[in-house]
Design a protein around this nucleic acid. Sequence first.
DNA 1: CTGAAAGCGCTTACAG
DNA 2: CTGAAAGCGCTTACAG
Lengths: 342, 342
Amino acid sequence: MKKTSINDIARHLGVSKTLVSFVLNGRAKEFRIGDDIAARVLEVAREMNYQPNRIAQGLRTGKTKTIGLIIADIANPFFGKLGREIEQEAALHDYHVIFCSSDENPEKSRAQIAMLQQSQVDGYIISPPINSEEQIRLLAKGRIPFVLIDRYFPEIESDYIVVDNYDAAYKATSHLLAQGRRRIANITMNLNLVNMNERTEGYKQALLGHSIAVDENLIKVLPFSHDNKDVTKAIQELLGSTDGRKADAILFSTSKIGVMGIECISALGLKIPDDVAVVSFDNADAYKICVSPVTVVGQPLQEIGKTAVQIIMDKIEHPRNPARFQHIKLNTELIVRKSCGS
Amino acid sequence: MKKTSINDIARHLGVSKTLVSFVLNGRAKEFRIGDDIAARVLEVAREMNYQPNRIAQGLRTGKTKTIGLIIADIANPFFGKLGREIEQEAALHDYHVIFCSSDENPEKSRAQIAMLQQSQVDGYIISPPINSEEQIRLLAKGRIPFVLIDRYFPEIESDYIVVDNYDAAYKATSHLLAQGRRRIANITMNLNLVNMNERTEGYKQALLGHSIAVDENLIKVLPFSHDNKDVTKAIQELLGSTDGRKADAILFSTSKIGVMGIECISALGLKIPDDVAVVSFDNADAYKICVSPVTVVGQPLQEIGKTAVQIIMDKIEHPRNPARFQHIKLNTELIVRKSCGS
DNA sequence: CTGAAAGCGCTTACAG
DNA sequence: CTGAAAGCGCTTACAG
């Protein structure tokens, strides 16, 4: 059962493969090919179960109809949902997506970009890890379009789609303040990541805006590759002391941290929101059925994914020189549930 | 900045591209190519930042080093985690993965298989939706290897990796019985899916094994594409009546259903495990921080993903005729938490 | 030890 | 209206 090629069809009908190619690509009219012969080609193609070889098309046309996606971890629901939106939008354009999880590790993302490059993807959607500036800069020098999502590098010219993190954290912190909390902590990860940094900035400014001094002891910065232990340690420092707890509220900068954090809080026997109020970034499913459903900063994942693909498609179809870059900053939504009291 | 090809290197050094290809593929020794010239080739390749074109290699060798993955939904943490394991294992073999979410829709999976076919993937890992027997049978007739995961079709000869669903449900139900529950319900989805069917069978047999009659009213079968409304309706029927509730425990056959179910239970103002005990398939993160942390059937996701890739790799590297099929059934683990009382 | 040539399956100027 | 030919970037018999 060898696959049938355009050649097989041509031979079968005694015509040239040029002709076959034309009609298969729907360009029969354009080249004024006889209706009868065009119909026969289509018929035989169906009979022989012809499937165009995209690899061959790719080599010839220079378009593989594939986009490469690099995110931190596809198993993380935040990125999983984002990946889903991207897959869906790409499919509308007859595009495939190859996904790569970088684990926020620049070494991995570098290798992944190289692999994707060799696979001749037509475009990239990347959530760049820390210290990956050089790779991204190199990518920018090439002619394959890419969009950054979730974060970006201010010093590199590129398209990007992010969320207004500063505003989101400001709103979240203000909400906590409005509920009467004063010793509000923030658990985040490596602040060299712009998005994380903006969140913590928004948090700080909200405090200052309400005349509350920023207490650096209440800001816990986890390493980018963090696990339960790191979170436990942070929570312990914030809430563990028996003689009066340092914090009365926590803003979690990611849902990965938040979910682990809430697990720790429960393990300590503390109640949310009575002992500690909680707000987290990202509307994870877990938060809906949590001890006390968690107030979250919801991100417009569909819009992020859809827009990212659309920008890439536009650049693929209309390469422009010099390139014009889009910087898109989307709004978030504070979804109030019960974790901050009522 | 055009990409450098093997030809550029050959021209630059005044040698043939055959020679360049040999040394670039590490076959210099094999063809007894001069050490000096081999070294020069490598050097120039680095200088010119040569990146092999996988598309061209693929066309020539017939191997694209890509595997296609079809699961229900990459945004569903269960499949997200599985996808991650598959990606990771594939990377070890220098393979990429293209992912497709079928939404349990056979029309979609059919189109996805066709696309993947055209993209000349070297193998498939598929979690086949209901009514996709025909597609899978067709695939089996081709010469590209595939492995089924999570479910399989008993009537189709193929490799597959599943979990012992019958045993898992039997254990879970027995646990509920051991906690004194007697009116145990099961909320599942379309039973034509073997894995779902086996779960409900295990549930029934556990009841019978403890001399408890199976009450079909306690088994709620949701359509394969279900949402919050469907789950709410089922929960309502099971727990909503004011004059004595029908059920005192629920076994959720998937975590997607379970998470929504617990949300409903809370909305009804019912307490877990006091008013109703709960066990669910899949160790979702949500369950860890739930109102009352949920007892779950944990699946060996890493082993499933890893084994699936290994089987595919083996088949790609050692095509055998006639094919021999592996049927792997892995064990699950009942992780007892607090949702069934103590 | 090295090179010229064929060919993977397509698309697309070019010619008639 | 249709076909012969070139070429995308590789690998691999084959020849010398």
